[in-house]
């Protein structure tokens, strides 16, 4: 599903998270990169350098917005001031889709700035789906929800995480940003089969995939985004794109960030798996001669 209604019928290739340590390199050298994902909140400001930098990036590159504070799963209603700022940014970036997490992180207007796990219940799924629809209607852009990594589960849960994800996205009729690293991390922390997770989600709704590195501790794994992607995550990625099709893929690297070239090289490792997935999915005869943007990355935009 390279292009579908959940990613605005785009066919984006391998992208990178836009991070401050790389600004200068990107603006001066204009390196090849198929697209950048921005953290919406970093640019939901009223002026100054962040928006100045963003405008320069937008002149050269395709940008997709990824949020960290919409908290679709919070009991609170969407905050109007937040939505207003977000919509202004959506208009600025012309993002073809917008993603945020399937989680909660605030209640009664107090924010944790964390991605807290949901109780996997039908009532929570209904409430969350309703909120996603409200946000989509206001922003007028396709919405994708991302599965988070988690370290705790609630007694009240009535289903698995992937069943909950499926329940929410079907009810909201929205897309999925499938984070395969988060699946792997949560699978280790909660002792489930990560492949069962991937197989259990409606893959026709996957609009984007995240890959990232994590850190192993004695009793659990933490989603740290400060390492290269580990082999089991790449294998899960390969499995996901065999099912979902070759999908816009983004590497997240948020801490101990190395040079742009190093991060980009890590992201481009996805190409090995994409080639494998294409070969596995296409019939041997009459395979269409499809040229992907991924195979021929454009300079700048």
């Amino acid at each position: 599903m390279p292009a579908n209604r959940f990613n605005g019928f785009t066919d984006y290739g391998i992208g990178l998270g836009l991070r401050v340590p790389h600004y200068q390199h990107i603006l001066e050298k204009k390196p090849t990169c198929d697209w950048f994902e921005i953290i919406s909140e970093n640019f939901m400001v009223d002026g100054g350098r962040p928006l100045h930098v963003l405008d320069q990036i937008l002149e050269q590159y395709r940008v997709v917005q990824h949020g960290v504070s919409m908290y679709f799963g919070s009991a609170d209603k969407p905050d109007r001031a937040h939505l207003k700022k977000l919509k202004a940014l959506v208009k600025r970036t012309k993002t073809p889709w917008l993603s945020d997490h399937l989680c909660w992180g605030s209640v009664d207007g107090t924010y944790t700035h964390d991605l807290l796990p949901m109780p996997y219940t039908f009532s929570a799924a209904r409430r969350t789906a309703e909120k996603i629809k409200q946000v989509r209607d206001y922003l007028e852009v396709p919405i994708c929800v991302e599965n988070v990594s988690s370290y705790a589960e609630f007694h009240v849960s009535e289903m698995t995480e992937w069943e909950f994800l499926a329940e929410v996205v079907e009810r909201a009729d929205c897309g999925i940003l499938l984070d395969v690293n988060n699946i792997y991390v949560s699978a280790q922390n909660h002792s489930f089969d990560p492949y069962a997770y991937v197989n259990g989600v409606p893959l026709d709704r996957v609009a984007q995939i995240h890959v990232a590195g994590h850190t192993k501790f004695e009793k659990y794994i933490l989603d740290t985004h400060d390492h290269p992607v580990l082999d089991p995550v790449w294998k899960l990625y390969a499995h996901a794109i065999r099912g979902a099709g070759v999908t816009a893929t983004l590497l997240e690297w948020d801490d101990k960030i190395p040079s742009f070239d190093e991060v980009h090289a890590e992201a481009l490792k996805a190409n090995e798996f994409i080639a494998g997935a294409r070969a596995a999915r296409l019939p041997k005869s009459n395979a269409p001669a499809r040229t992907s943007r991924r195979a021929v990355p454009t300079v700048g935009r």
Binding site: W104, V107, D108, P119, S123, A124, V156
Partner: peptide
């Protein structure tokens, strides 16, 4: 049990 929105808010 989480039967209502109020239950979700209570848990959160």
């Amino acid at each position: 049990k989480l039967a209502t929105d109020a239950d979700l808010r209570a848990l959160q």
